[in-house]
Amino acid sequence: MIPFLITTGSVLVFYLILTAGSGTIGLWSLSELVAGVCASVVAGLLTKSFLCHKGDYRMLNPVRLVLAVCYVIGPFFLEMTKANLDVAYRVITMRIRPGIIRVQSDLKSDLGIFMLANSITLTPGTITVDIDEETHDLYIHNINVGEGDEVRPAFRDHELFSLANLPAWIRRIAE
């Protein structure tokens, strides 16, 4: 029952955001509200076993949601800007030293690993190639491996980011 309510609620909120500005009841028209409730109940019935299949509801905590938004706008966007200037520099000068390195992480939950892998792909010079499901090690293609770093067996996750400690942010949001 709780997974159904959570799924229906999130689908309804998403539908209302998509159709904001369609009428006069608040921001919505009556037909959009009725259609939104019907569609979200159907979607909730069909997909209730996917969204929270492990039975933990800690992402409902509003503090975590606000932190997630702050994370995307603040440190994540900063790192992304730096990564893009870096890639632009390497496209023009072709100074690359590529290699696949291994990165160890303390993050344990699925959502945490997912956020870390996506953040790594969009930030400084790195793309996640594979993930070890048991030990949560990430294998990362780095476009510019530092001198002497190719002999190191493993890195820690926060060494990849220079401007902000993104793994600490993700731990606060998702763990």
Binding site: P98, G99, I101, D130
Partner: peptide, 13 residues
């Protein structure tokens, strides 16, 4: 395989 590459830890794994 990544070519050129200075190291490939996934290949060893």
């Amino acid at each position: 395989r990544p070519i050129p590459a200075v190291c490939d830890r996934l290949e060893e794994f």
